[in-house]
Amino acid sequence: MPADVPPARGSLAVTAASLAGLLALWSAAALLAADPGLMPGPWLVGPLMWQEAVSGRLWLHLGATLARVAAAFGLAMLLGTALGLAMGRLPRLDRWLDPWLVVLLNLPALVTIVLCYIWIGLTEAAAVTAVALNKVPMVTVMLREGVRALDPGLDAMARVFRMSPSARLRHVVLPQLAPHLAAAARAGLALIWKIVLVVEFLGRSSGVGFQIHLYFQLFDVGMVLAYALAFIAVMLAIEKLLLQPWEAHVRRWRGP
């Protein structure tokens, strides 16, 4: 296991410079386009974000979207982990379910969303189900790989000492799966929030996706960008403040 390379002192500066470059590119494009309706610059989008934040609308819609992300994420991780554990442990089940997994992996998100809305109705449950269903096969595949890589020595140890199934899961199996869970969580979050926006675009009356739909119909590019950027900022904050500290916590036994 290669040691985790700590971010070099200069890397924060590079990140900042890189983001400043992106901002500069955007500003240049806005100046060249010379049409604030089509391509508003950062100096126009920034105040729009501020205005939405002060009015409270931004928080309302961010909150609605985040709640859906959280619900779909939790559901997908739970189902995907359970399925991945079962398929990794039981080769017969794996042979039977693997083709289903391949079909689901290749099912376009849009199809799942449309079908869920038609079959379940234009409800919150349909929205969350559709997003979770898009994510479950990926979690399953990643966890199945983790289960196949479980240490047979530790498994034998747990059996000899007759550890209870719950103790085995908690202290023997899950710690070995932690890197796979973290990878699935990270990839999952990135995928889920994008699909949640589509779900909101197509059939909800709140959330960032709904706002983008609204301002798309009004051809208000500034507001579309304001909501999109606000949400990207939130997801990056979650990654930095929740996901990365959790990964560091589960890796602490590896030591420096």
Partner: peptide, 8 residues
Amino acid sequence: EPTLLPWR
């Protein structure tokens, strides 16, 4: 092998 739980 010692077969310990390295995370405990």
